[in-house]
C-alpha cells in the first residue's frame, strides 16, 4: 500500500464521518452511553474494593502483657512484634494510656478506679495485620510468647469481612465483565447499522474495482474516530459526575468523619478510566467495522 493511499484512506474516514453526520452522531451517542454504563460499574467496583480493603485492615488485635513485666521484658515482646513480617503496624500503649482509657470507658463510674494507680495496668500493643487471612497464624505465634497474657481479637468479624470482600470482588468483576460484553454488542450493532445504510456504496466501490482493504479501511478509520470521540465525551461526563459526587460526599461530614466509607480520589482512577474507555472503544470500533463490512464485500 502506498503512502498516498494511506493518506487517502485516513482522509476518507474523516470526510465520511463528517458527511454522514447523523449516523456518526447516533453512533457516538450510543458509544458514550454504553461506555458510561461500563464506567459506572468500573468506578463502583474500584470503590468497593477500596472500602473492603479498608475494612479488612481495620480489625485490630490487642496484645496484653502481664502487669508484672518490667521494661526490658516488654521490649522483648515489642521486638518480636516488630520483626513479625505479617504485621503491618503496631502501636505501643503504655500503662498510663491504658489507665486513662479505662477511666474514659467507665465514665461516671471512674470513681471505682480511685486508689488504683497506672502501675496496676498492663502495657499492650495494638496490632494491624497486613491481611486478615494471617490472623490465626499470628495469634498462635504470639500466644506462645512468654510475657503475653492474652490477645483480644474477634475472629468472627475477621472471617465475615474476608468472606464478604471475596463476594464483593467477585460480584463487581462479574458486573464489569457483563457490561463490557453488553457495550461491545451495542457498539458493534450500531456499526452494523451504519454499514448497512451504506451497503450500496460498498457495492459500487467493488464494481469499479476497489480491493476489499481499500473499502474496509475508511470504515475502520471511521469506527475509530467515532469511538475516540465517544470515549472522550464519556470520560468527561463520568469524571465530572464522579467529582461532583465526591465533593458532596466529602462535604457530608458525618460520613467523612466516621471513616467507615471512603471514595477513591478521581486522580487515582482517571488514567484507568480513560484508558479502558479508549481501549474498549477503539478495539470494538475496529472489530465492529471489520466484521460488519465483511458480508457486503462479497460481490
Amino acid at each position: 500500500m502506498k503512502i498516498r493511499t494511506v493518506r487517502h484512506i485516513i482522509k476518507d474516514g474523516f470526510v465520511n464521518t463528517y458527511r454522514n453526520k447523523l449516523m456518526s452522531l447516533a453512533s457516538t451517542v450510543i458509544v458514550v452511553a454504553s461506555l458510561i454504563i461500563f464506567g459506572f460499574f468500573l468506578l463502583v467496583s474500584y470503590n468497593l474494593e477500596l472500602n473492603v480493603k479498608m475494612w479488612q485492615e481495620q480489625p485490630q488485635m490487642e496484645v496484653f502483657c502481664y502487669t508484672e513485666l518490667d521494661a526490658t521484658q516488654v521490649k522483648m515482646v515489642e521486638d518480636s512484634i516488630k520483626n513479625n513480617d505479617k504485621i503491618a503496624e503496631y502501636i505501643r500503649v503504655s500503662r498510663e494510656e491504658n489507665y486513662e482509657k479505662a477511666k474514659e470507658k467507665l465514665g461516671k463510674g471512674s470513681d471505682l478506679l480511685k486508689g488504683y494507680g497506672a502501675d496496676t495496668f498492663m502495657e499492650s500493643f495494638i496490632i494491624r495485620l497486613k491481611d486478615t487471612q494471617y490472623s490465626q497464624e499470628v495469634v498462635s505465634s504470639l500466644e506462645k510468647m512468654s510475657g503475653v497474657e492474652k490477645i483480644s481479637y474477634s475472629q468472627n468479624a475477621i472471617d465475615v469481612i474476608s468472606r464478604i470482600s471475596y463476594w464483593i470482588k467477585l460480584g463487581s468483576s462479574l458486573m464489569v465483565t457483563i457490561f463490557l460484553v453488553v457495550s461491545v454488542f451495542i457498539i458493534s450493532n450500531t456499526i452494523k447499522l451504519t454499514v448497512f445504510a451504506r451497503r450500496k456504496e460498498i457495492n459500487i466501490m467493488k464494481y469499479i474495482g476497489a480491493t476489499d482493504w481499500f473499502i474496509r479501511w475508511p470504515f475502520v478509520v471511521e469506527g475509530v474516530i467515532i469511538s475516540i470521540v465517544g470515549a472522550i465525551v464519556a470520560f468527561v461526563i463520568s469524571a465530572y459526575g464522579y467529582m461532583s459526587l465526591y465533593d458532596k460526599f466529602a462535604q457530608d461530614l458525618f460520613l467523612a468523619d466516621s471513616q467507615l466509607l471512603k471514595m477513591v480520589d478521581i486522580s487515582e482512577v482517571w488514567p484507568q478510566l480513560i484508558l479502558s474507555y479508549l481501549a474498549i472503544g477503539v478495539v470494538v470500533g475496529m472489530i465492529g467495522s471489520f466484521l460488519s463490512i465483511r458480508k457486503h464485500l462479497r460481490v
Binding site: 465520511n16 454522514n20 456504496e201 459500487i204 467493488k206 464494481y207 469499479i208 474495482g209
Partner: peptide, 19 residues
C-alpha cells in the same frame, strides 16, 4: 478487483457514490 479495473462499467442505475 484487477479484472474490474481493466474494464469500464456503466449500469442502468448509474451507481455513483452519493457522498
Amino acid at each position: 478487483p484487477y479484472l474490474r479495473r481493466s474494464l469500464g462499467c456503466v449500469f442502468q442505475d448509474f451507481r455513483l457514490l452519493p457522498n
